[in-house]
Design a binder for these strands. Sequence first.
DNA 1: CACTGGAGCCAC
DNA 2: AAACGTGGCTCCAGTG
Length: 416
Amino acid sequence: MCIDVERLGSSIRKTEQKIKELEHRAKKTKGWAAWKRRFGSKASMGSRLQLGVVLFEEMGFEPVKNKDGKIQVDEKQLERIDSDLARLFVNIEKLKKLKTTYLEGISREVVDGLLHPFFNLHLVETYRSSSDSPNFQNIPIRDAKMGKIIRSCFVPRPGHALVEIDYGALEFRVCACFWRDDSMVAYASDPSLDIHRDMAAELYCVPRDGVTKEMRFYAKNSFVFATLYGSYYKSTSRSLWQAMESSSMVDADGRSVKKILSRKSIDKHNYPDHVQRVEEKLQARFPQWTKRKEEWWSKYLRTGRFRMLTGFELEGVYSRNNLMNTPIQGPAFHILLWSLIRMVKWCAKRRTKIVGQIHDSIVADVHLSELDEYLAVAKQVMTKDVRDHWSWIVTPLEIEAEVAHDNWFNKKVIEV
DNA sequence: CACTGGAGCCAC
DNA sequence: AAACGTGGCTCCAGTG
């Protein structure tokens, strides 16, 4: 893929400058004076361990320990501490990550303006793919500021556009196909149904139309997927409560979710009991999943092996959670891979090239004269042909396409 | 100096 | 029975 090398270079210089400024400011804080007192010539601003000692032993802040009893000095804990030094440390570390892993990591691998990441098919336990040198599959996007700085350096060739097509809810659809749970298949097939919205309503005690994007986000990632892949209420309730509290979550009408729960006599203490009841509702809603996952596990215990929907036979030592996740994560990727291979073949006699892949999405550098045809063929291959190839895909498949004429950050949704 | 594990953080 | 999953990369801190 093409890289805007000049822009990359200037972003590196700007980020370096910003880091220097923040480090200069950090050295003027009271905390840094305490740091120097404690560590003398060994004081190093890059050391989390030292920062933890300064904050929790010298400055008297209350430490928080993780499950293994270790004091955490991560972003989450540092943000709750009222100290200029802690705030500056978080910002400096973010910028360092941006500079070293992404900007410089990419720059190092560019040859004649082109980047050639590796895409491995032989490394991942679940038979997904991985990527390295650089890893094309973890370029920032959720933090829009970081995403802009890095993704704007990825550009199409002249006369081309970058086109990214991703599957909608691919893993949940494969989950439904694998467990063949009628209700799960219905959820994965009917666009008016939304399991994450429904569970958010239960978890936060609001009507379904009171569910916000934020509530849905946490219900999806901290509860529904976590539970499908083997977590349970004692774990999920903790992260749900934490997210709700630290974001001061409100419902669609701006009312405090914590207050809504407390009116139902739900507090931090008994929230796990509430989540346990919601978990039971999830099991009741997907009864075949509930039954078949136990049969799936006990069959593995008897035989020591299991088979994926895509035909791979796996044997050896797997945890219970591996048994829940592997048969879904692997075949979900194989749907993408099958489609990608078809699209690469389609590109053979054309100017368009497939340049990358991110588990459920395909990135291509498409010649403008081939754009309409590319989108139409991709839709046919990704939503129809692959379903004809594998009869176990019993749900519809959907795609979303985005096109970028200038750079990858500025991709815009396009109807297909 | 080479190497390694832990902690942390980025993606899906 | 056991407690979401899969990766890659960087820095620190420790070892020999």
